[in-house]
Design a protein around this nucleic acid. Sequence first.
DNA 1: CTAGGGTTAG
Length: 599
Amino acid sequence: MTTSSWVIPWTCGSMAEVKQQHSLLVRMGLWSDNHAVSGILSFCSLSKQGDIDYALKLFTTLPNPDTFLYNTLFKAFPSHSLLFYSHMLQQSLIPNTFTFPSLLRACNSYPEAKQLHAHVFKFGLGHDTFALNNLIHVYLAFRSFHDATRVFSTMPHPNVVSWTTLVSGYSQWGLVDRAFRLFQLMPCKNSVSWNAMIAAFVKTNRFPEAFALFRRMRMEKVPLDSFLAATMLSACTAVAALDQGKWIHGYVERTGIVLDSKLASAIVDMYCKCGCLDKAFQLFCGFKVRGVSSWNCMIGGFAMHGKGKEAIRLFKEMEEEAVLVPDAITFVNLLTACAHSGMVEEGRYYFDYMVHIHGIEPTKEHYGCMVDLFARAGQLEEAKKVIDEMPMSPDATVLGALLGACRIHGNLELGEELGKRVIELDPGNSGRYVILGNIYASCGKWEQVARVRKMMDDRGVKKEPGVSIIEMEGVVNEFVAGGKDHPLAEAIYAKVYEMLESIRLIGYVPDTDGLLHDLVEEERENPLFYHSEKLAIAYGLLKTKWGETLRVTKNLRVCKDCHQASKFVSKVYDCDIIIRDTNRFHHFSKGECSCQDYW
DNA sequence: CTAGGGTTAG
């Protein structure tokens, strides 16, 4: 009988079987036979059902472990692999082609990488593609573009992996343009390379480029896989491209791409954030794999749509499934749901529940939710208390939540104090100057308004323009407030005029309260009338049939006047309008909004 | 026994 017949434990399903095999080896006197134990060691170290403590114990019993066994150990114990490696060298063992990939991955510092680089060459592996690709990867992880490109340029046969590693390494550090230049030089690309590049555009919010590249990829007949599907879905989510998102989802279903929990989350999130909450929930219920992130997306979806009760119901269901443990994000979403639905007591309850039952340490985000929860409900004192008592120093987002509420509830003193603090914390963010200016304006403090405006000018802070997006016939249309870049601009402006005239007839009165923030830029006409969402809605009315639902996405919070106008439009034109802003969805129908003006 | 890619909050 040859020893190789004992290298079988990969066919074992459990540690119990492996231990039986091991004891059999011992009884046969093969306990120190490297080849015979290799399968057992692999199973213990690398299998999901393995037991790495057992692996280590087994390893220490071996009198003369070989390079193969050391390689296995490196993978199982990345944190100790360099130590094991030095043992291995002391035994005069020679590293082979499988040694450096895992060692390099376990590198903790740039000097370590340099040293291993030297070893790769000393042991004659200077032409080994696997070792070199891993070197590139590690150098990029330590941000050494110089070393990475040097390795790359001396490679005799760089392959797709080498190129892709460089592309994603550059984009990882924000050098997306450089990554793209490399990408275009690639002699051949596969789905991994395409995905790396598209994902780089998506992560940096360069959506037009992401979609353009995706189109190119499709023209080259590259099939989608689950990674590309997830990446493109997140792009669709970001720009609210529902039709394209549906197409990706359809493709996944048609071609039988396996739905893992990440892809499932991306699908759920896409439908939630593109305004199709029911569709998202229906799919969510049917998915077999539902990781924590899928639940989180769904709870977050309910939160954005102001459905606090549904969010809580889903959370309870999640706990009943018992195999899944809610994490910090689950509670951010759950608390957001409470905040957006005015469920103050429930929010308070679940915050404590998170801390005491689940032992989750609240982060800034959780405190931010609590501030939002109280502030939205008008309990400014309570919100202030959260800020004063939170253990970390409150950042601009947390303070900003309360500042916004001060404007809505007209609290000058607190608003003034917070406004100044927030602006100093984050002086480049125009939105906070605008809110502070508005607070002053609503109290008639005009000199203060002028001072805020001057401060913006002096610091060169420009008001972030409102941008709304509406997807029509698969094309994403962007509208900037007051902008006339769209090819149909003239018709659109005429439609806005008609729209405003017809809603005036049933009682719309322009709300000039929000006018101040527009006076920052001087315009002759009332700029309120040409806010980006009004343009997008007008375009939607032009292009759709009577009664169709319009879906608009905005980069800022929808203003009070547009909110009011949208209600009237939904009534006069008998169409539903769904606006997604930075915070939540507003579903306008028959003159009402789903937020019930609670925002 | 080896290398490159994807989701959720703020």
